[in-house]
C-alpha cells in the first residue's frame, strides 16, 4: 500500500467512525441540525486527536496545500453527503426554512469551513485545544443562524472568501 493510499484510508476511517459514533448517541435524532453538526465536530476533533502525530507528521507546513485534493477526495464526498443529510433532515423537521437547498455554494462553504477548522486545530496550542472548541461553537452557530434566515447570498460570499483567503494566509 502506498503512503497516499494509507493516508486516504486513514482519513476515511476517522470520518466514518465519527459519523457512526455521533449517530449512535440516543439523543442524536432529537437534536437540532445545528447541535447535530456541533456534535459531529466535537467528536471529529476528539478522534483526530488520537491520530494527531500522524497528521502533524504528514502536514507540517507547506504540504497542507495538498490537503483538499487527491488524498481527501472520498473524505470530502462523505463529509458533504453527511452535511446535506443533516441539513435536509433539519428542513423536513421544519427547523430550517424550505428554501434551503445545499447547492454548490453551500457545499463550497461547508468544505471551506471544514478545512478551516481542521487547520486551526492543527496549529492550536491552547490547553485541551479549547480554542478549536470555541471556533467550532462560533462558526457552526453563525452558519446555522444564517441558514435559518435563508440568507443565501451572505453565505456564498463567506464561502468564497474562505476559499480564497484563510488557506493562503495561514501557510504562505
Amino acid at each position: 500500500m502506498t503512503t497516499l493510499e494509507f493516508a486516504r484510508r486513514k482519513w476515511k476511517q476517522i470520518l466514518d467512525d465519527t459519523i457512526n459514533e455521533v449517530k449512535a448517541d440516543p439523543e442524536y435524532s432529537s437534536m437540532t441540525a445545528c447541535d447535530q453538526f456541533l456534535s459531529f465536530y466535537y467528536t471529529l476533533t476528539a478522534n483526530l486527536e488520537e491520530s494527531r502525530d500522524f497528521i502533524l507528521a504528514r502536514y507540517d507546513h507547506s504540504s497542507c496545500f495538498q490537503l483538499h485534493t487527491e488524498e481527501l477526495r472520498s473524505y470530502r464526498k462523505t463529509f458533504l453527503n453527511y452535511s446535506s443529510e443533516v441539513v435536509s433532515k433539519g428542513r423536513l423537521n421544519g427547523r430550517l426554512p424550505n428554501l434551503v437547498v445545499l447547492n454548490r455554494g453551500y457545499t463550497a462553504f461547508l468544505w471551506a469551513q471544514h478545512l478551516f477548522i481542521a487547520r486551526y486545530w492543527l496549529t492550536d496550542e491552547s490547553q485541551d485545544r479549547e480554542k478549536t472548541d470555541a471556533l467550532i461553537e462560533k462558526s457552526i452557530n453563525s452558519f446555522f443562524n444564517l441558514l435559518g434566515k435563508g440568507d443565501i447570498q451572505s453565505i456564498l460570499d463567506v464561502g468564497k472568501f474562505m476559499i480564497q483567503n484563510p488557506i493562503k494566509l495561514r501557510w504562505q
Binding site: M31, C34, L38, S39, Y42, D128, D133, N141
Partner: peptide, 11 residues
C-alpha cells in the same frame, strides 16, 4: 451548546 457541554464532560 449542549454538544460542547457534553464534550467538556467527556474530556
Amino acid at each position: 451548546s449542549y454538544p460542547l457541554v457534553v464534550k467538556t464532560f467527556k474530556k
